[in-house]
Design a protein around this nucleic acid. Structure first.
Length: 510
RNA sequence: GCCCCCAUCGUCUAGUGGCCUAGGAUACCGCCCUUUCAAGGCGGGGACAGGGAUUCGAAUUCCCUUGGGGGUACCA
């Protein structure tokens, strides 16, 4: 079995494309078939060569290695569609010769006067491309221009005037059915598929021709792609039929939608894979999550390794309805993967992200130290959803400066006058200890509380505000130990100073 | 407009005529634990879009309505 992922390099690999690639990969690995990467770069207007690399990077990040592709060759090379143009023209010519296609001299139909589409340049008309006039009663949107039946004399005359496009002669009077592996039999009324263009006036093979030819030539057995291609399928089947080729099986995957139930677009926050990488999602989690978006193993399992997925995957488990991309669940899953792996791995990912950040004050000092990163990772590895969350929740670990206390934290734990007292007491207790490991500082603080006859938390809360600037943090004793005596003392001093300077109005708290 | 597809908790889904007073996960809420926040444990609310039809019996079959999505290019 041979499947392919055929992106066009018009942008970064987005989650929809990634999901399509993943399902193809899973299918290939499950059946021991080949997963081929074919880059469909035939639309010169929108292509960007640099995006080919972006696609490679996205697939590699996910760990979806391809067996054949532009960069690694294979028995059916080349895998860059633009390099196969000659072959596309050959097939077009064969189609023409056997009467399955005809030359069309019509002007380009004006692109729908819909808003965003870039208006196609309109050439002077030879014949009306679309039959105008009142809507035909029985609903017959199919357009047949007179080029379909030009006689030899007229044909020759027209050829002198301009280069024709080549249209497929769609057989009239029959409906077209697609036996789709995920949605069953789909029937398109014959009147709806019109004589579509195979090759443009300037000799470029268009998508339906190129895709059909390449899929056939590359011996693709299963075409697994997004639902947006469903309506193209009858056209491609017609090409196979006209050429006498055996068509592949087709499977159309449901679209991934955003929270507003629309097709994912740039405005929906992160849509391309590299953004997820940058935010500290782990590839295995993204793969797991994407696999469950539109597919289910049929039981209640949620956490599935790559091997599980390969073993369990089949097209029968693919659902028909579109799925909404839910970041909350991805976050949960990512946390599961972070927790399931040792803290050292989180530390490694932190270092990777740190390396990509500018070396400003935020990441100065001890943040460079591997052992230090590891300790911080230890503290956060079962409380963060993403790697960057460590830097956000634990920002106080990545600066040598005193922290700026959050107003809420101040209001919650430092409102009363006694907070200052407590800070002074705990400061001097802490200053008096030489060892500064978690166990020691815990004993110091608990002893202090016992001695003063109050709760340890009475000291802990203001202390947390002093060293982290926040009302919440991981266990305070470990935080203190990692920060180190010097920074801790300095931060206590800074907060005491700040509290002292504040207006004396609110000295009591109810 | 026309064509096609789809329709179970907010979200991802299980469910292929009786096992369903509809299961799981996530999100949310509560309790326990606790130095805070998480994690963890326990518990809670929450769905078969609507209407017909078939059937002894429908989330499951058929039809209509509604809603959502996709397509409608000399783009892919």
């Amino acid at each position: 079995m041979r499947v392919r992922f055929a992106p066009s390099p018009t942008g970064y690999l987005h989650v929809g494309g990634a999901r399509t690639a993943l399902f193809n990969w899973l299918f290939a690995r499950h059946h021991g078939g080949a997963f081929v990467l074919r880059v469909e770069d035939t639309d010169v207007a929108r292509n960007r060569p640099e995006y080919v690399n972006a696609i490679y990077e996205g697939l590699r990040w996910l760990g979806l290695e391809w067996d054949e592709g532009p960069d690694r060759g294979g028995p059916y090379a080349p895998y860059l569609q633009s390099l196969r143009a000659q072959r596309h023209r050959e097939v077009a010519q064969a189609l023409h010769e056997r009467g399955a296609a005809y030359e069309c001299f019509c002007s380009q139909r004006p692109a729908d006067d819909n808003e965003d589409e870039d208006e196609a340049q309109q050439l002077p008309a030879v014949a009306p491309a679309r039959a105008e006039g009142p809507k035909q009663a029985a609903g017959a949107p199919r357009t047949v221009c007179e080029c379909r039946t030009l006689d030899a004399g007229r044909l020759a005359a027209l050829r002198e005037e301009r280069a024709p496009a080549l249209r497929l002669r769609v057989p009239p009077g029959r409906d077209f059915v697609v036996d789709d592996l995920v949605r069953g039999r789909v029937t398109f009324p014959g009147v709806m598929v019109e004589d579509f263009v195979l090759v443009t006036g300037d000799g470029r093979a268009l998508y339906n021709l190129a895709a059909a030819v390449d899929d056939h030539d590359m011996a693709i057995s299963h075409v697994i792609r997004g639902e947006e291609h469903l309506a193209n399928t009858p056209k491609q089947q017609l090409i196979y039929e006209a050429m006498g080729w055996q068509p592949p099986h087709f499977a159309h995957l449901p679209i991934i939608l955003n929270q507003q139930r629309r097709k994912l677009s740039k405005r929906d926050g992160a849509t391309s894979l590299n953004e997820y990488a940058a935010m500290g999602y782990v590839p295995d989690a993204v793969v797991n999550f994407l696999a469950l978006l539109g597919w289910s193993p049929g039981d209640n399992r949620e956490i599935l390794s790559r091997d599980d997925l390969i073993r369990l995957f089949d097209l029968g488990g693919v659902v028909k309805h579109p799925a909404i991309f839910d970041t909350a669940k991805l976050n949960w899953m990512n946390r599961e993967y972070i927790k399931a792996r040792p803290a050292a791995e989180l530390a490694r990912r932190m270092r990777e992200l740190l390396a990509q950040r500018p070396a400003d004050g935020e990441t100065a000092g001890p943040a460079r130290d591997d052992a230090y990163i590891e300790k911080v990772a230890e503290l956060f590895h079962d409380r963060v959803r993403t790697v960057v969350e460590v830097f956000e929740l634990g920002s106080y670990f990545f600066t040598d400066e005193p922290v700026v206390p959050a107003p809420e934290a101040l209001a919650k734990y430092c409102a009363g006058r006694e907070a200052v007292e407590r800070l002074r007491e705990v400061r001097s207790a802490l200053a008096g200890t030489a060892a500064f490991d978690a166990a020691t500082v815990e004993k110091v603080i608990r002893d202090l509380a016992a001695e003063r006859g109050c709760k340890a938390s009475d000291y802990i809360h203001p202390l947390r505000v002093a060293v982290t600037g926040q009302a919440v943090s991981p266990g305070i004793f470990q935080v203190l130990a990692i920060l180190g005596k010097e920074r801790v003392l300095r931060r206590i001093d800074a907060l005491v100073h700040l509290l002292d300077a504040r207006p004396a109005a609110r000295t009591t708290v109810p």
